[in-house]
Amino acid sequence: MGDQILAQYSRRMRFRKILDKVLPLILSVAVFIAVATVFSVLFTTIMTGWHRLSLNLILNYPSANPNEAGMRSAILGSIYTVGLSALICIPLSIATAIYLVEYSRGGRLASILSYNISNLAGVPSVIFGVVGLGFLAYWLGMGRTIITGAFTLAILILPLVTVTCVEALKTIPDDLRLGAYALGATTFQVVRRVVLPRALPMMLTGGILGISRALGEAAPILIVSGLLFIRDDPTSLFSRFTVIPLQLFNWVSRPQPAFIELSSAGIIVLLIILFALNGLTIALRQVLARRAEWA
């Protein structure tokens, strides 16, 4: 009887031990496949494009001659639209998050709003392009311009950034809020003096996440702006524009191999910008976190 139980026990033990050895193996294979895919794509892109990297690529307008072609107008268009969309989106997201978490404290409106925001995050980005074109460009008469592109991108990244801002506020312990309220602080003062200084670094991280996402979007901009061959700098918010992903799209769709190389070089530029943004996030987070401790 006792032997039987012991045998059963050791059999189960053995199985668990084997599982303990095999599982990490399976998991590491999965990790390897994921990492290898990313690296091979990265490697191919860099090998194809790096000898096309030059100042021309950044400073020149697009051209039919691959040796002279650059993406100056696309880079400027991206900076204008994405920068402007961040200026629109980040304050709006922070304000929404503060309203949801600090003011309406789980009220009905708040739950309806946050439900819709999470739903919005799952809408395919082309839809935002269609809305941008139909509503902003034509109905409101803003035209297929930088400002329309910026608003379209802003609405596109709004859910993502708002959700991060809400999460940022939720990381602040309630103890601190109650302590401040108990001293006669108003909600505004609690937010401004206690909550926001600590939540801001994480909120800005969310903002930069949104910017990175907006930088890489091609589909909605393709719809709003059309695939354009632009050979001058934007002069106002109502200029026509193109963006880096669209320029790359244009190059990739050409038959000559030189343009394929150019598009790889363009991807490298885009990646460098994204890495720089990530670095900026980390730096910003550290500076602000240190300041928040001492605000």
Binding site: P173, D175, L176, L178, G179, A182, L183, E293
Partner: peptide, 11 residues
């Protein structure tokens, strides 16, 4: 004024 169970000084 109010003082809570766990000390909650501001950062």
């Amino acid at each position: 004024g109010m003082v809570f169970q766990r000390p909650n000084p501001f950062p």
